[in-house]
């Protein structure tokens, strides 16, 4: 038994050198062996834990729980007789039913197409590799996007945007000046202030 777990552990780590030979057997064994399957699962969880890759919310096997719930569901013993049980209609109705099923299938297909389209659009908004080239100075200020709850008059919006840009520009400048101020030595503090320093940094800093 422990040898089996040892082999499994090696496989999870990618250490199994004779993967083709033993690995295939092992995978078949995992499929048939509940114990091994459970171990396979927990080794991966441990591995993620060690690598600090665990998601914020752990989603353990939902399927098993649903199965359990279904099993404990009371069975319907005596279904009520309805029109389907009439001898004549019994053979006709399935066509209607089939139509219904097809309609459902079609709507699923439509939903899937829409879903896929939306999914693709989301893909295009991915932060990397998809940024449209910005005209003008590369690394310059790019527009700020807001998630606003209610609409604002155009003027206010411009004003808001201007203020936010001012904040961002100031933030960049403060970050640059920070290292200067943190490095101030007693000798440099004693120097008289020769000129007021107010650099106009129009673009954000790299």
């Amino acid at each position: 038994m422990s040898q089996k777990f040892e082999n499994l552990s090696a496989l999870v780590d990618g250490e199994n050198s004779q993967f083709d030979l033993q690995g295939n057997e092992l995978i078949t064994a995992i499929k048939n062996d509940k114990d091994l399957e459970q171990k396979w699962h927990s080794y991966h969880v441990i591995r993620y834990g060690l690598r600090k890759e665990l998601p914020q919310q752990m989603q353990f096997d939902i399927a098993a729980k649903v199965m359990l719930a279904l099993e404990s569901e009371p069975a319907i013993l005596a279904p009520k007789r309805n029109w389907r049980d009439l001898p004549v209609l019994g053979s006709v109705i399935p066509f209607v039913k089939q139509g219904g099923q097809m309609a459902i299938a079609a709507s699923v297909a439509v939903a899937m197409i829409i879903g896929v389209q939306q999914f693709n659009q989301n893909e295009a908004d991915q932060p990397f590799n998809s940024a449209a080239p910005i005209l003008g100075i590369p690394g310059g200020l790019s527009p700020v996007s807001f998630e606003q709850t209610n609409t604002m008059p155009q003027n206010d919006m411009m004003e808001q945007r201007r203020r936010i840009n001012a904040f961002i520009a100031d933030h960049q400048q403060q970050m640059r000046l920070k290292s200067v101020e943190l490095n101030i030595t007693p000798s440099s503090v004693e120097q008289p202030a020769k000129n007021d320093f107010q650099p106009e940094i129009l673009n954000d800093t790299p």
Partner: peptide
């Protein structure tokens, strides 16, 4: 002096901006 501003959250590059 911060007229016409309201609560908002935005993103500039990877900076979070919250008012």
């Amino acid at each position: 002096s911060a007229k016409a501003s309201q609560d908002l959250i935005g993103r500039h590059e990877s900076n979070t901006i919250l008012t």
